[in-house]
Design a protein around this nucleic acid. Sequence first.
DNA 1: TTAAAAATAAACCGATCGGTATATTCAATG
DNA 2: CATTGAATATACCGATCGGTTTATTTTTAA
Lengths: 192, 192
Amino acid sequence: MDKNTKRTPAALKILDAASQLFYWKGIHSIGVETIASEAGVTKKTLYDRFGSKDQLIVAYLEERDRQWKKHLDNYLDRIPDDKPLQKILSIFDALEKWLETNSQRGCAFVNALAELPEASHPGRKVIFEEKRWLKQLFATFLRHLEFDQADEIAEKLLMLHEGITVTYSMNLSTNGIASAKETVQLILNANQ
Amino acid sequence: MDKNTKRTPAALKILDAASQLFYWKGIHSIGVETIASEAGVTKKTLYDRFGSKDQLIVAYLEERDRQWKKHLDNYLDRIPDDKPLQKILSIFDALEKWLETNSQRGCAFVNALAELPEASHPGRKVIFEEKRWLKQLFATFLRHLEFDQADEIAEKLLMLHEGITVTYSMNLSTNGIASAKETVQLILNANQ
DNA sequence: TTAAAAATAAACCGATCGGTATATTCAATG
DNA sequence: CATTGAATATACCGATCGGTTTATTTTTAA
């Protein structure tokens, strides 16, 4: 957000176009030429603002991260801080809505990781950090609930989170994510 | 396998090289030139045997499917047919070993789907069919166990299966897949 | 108002992409 | 032994890749 206010109008259009194209068509199948023309902008402008395709990829991932966290906050903020159980459940509600509106092609981070095998690519840091962050968010709420082994349970919840996303994108979750939420309840009940 | 016995030696070398390169480097970042040279073979031979890169991609996915099912059978065959519960659990044991030895970079099918956005690409059929098959395998064993709603529970198990794979590839499953197996037990106990 | 930053326009670069052509050699089988 | 399928070697194709260059115009702030 701080980062976005300092972006020029053309940079915003580029990031917008790149986000859609990268997500829906894949990172490597889309060329900078396509992104520039889709954004109604010159390739020169793209390179002046972002430096390289790799840096644009990083910006795309960071922006996706920002949007997901903003979306998630809309859900978390409605739950009072003394209801950590409901906070956890609301993460899955947020995910459900997110999948319906922004993620018909699966998790942008998982997909991007598939296309970024080089250990040194800076985009990978963004991806790993995003998942680690979510796991820690689960763990924090679990600790408030005074669960033993908060980290272990957080791991299970994260697994579910990722599993839903994959199956949803393959049209294998026939009941929306209701199945997943039942399993969440099961895990929480079992360890309390 | 029937398909593999009729493959020429060069075709086998090509498929072998392509499988490794596609899985570890991604489908679009690897060119046919690289595959041919890695296989110690001419590009002409590659095109004589596989026709196009897209058809080679399909062959790669079919071969991966064959190998996973063969690996899985090694586990399932050890369990007698009148123990469907243990059959289900052995699927997750098979997955654990599979992840350790063949899947450090996540699920080949999920990754490939990320790179094949076009609805008409024949590789997508292979991918969807693989997941649908696994879900049905779960459902079959659950029906033998006389579970109500075998399909719904199969869905939950598939979610776990996919979730493990994702978190494993991101080094987020600190206890191997022990956490996942606990959740499997939880699901099975809850619905019996 | 004026100077700097941002954006346009368009040509250009070497490298690589997937795929083809032609001509030659090798290996197996009837 | 002859035929045929498989493989090699190599040059080539147009298209596209990510990225650069130069020159000009527009926008924005001090």
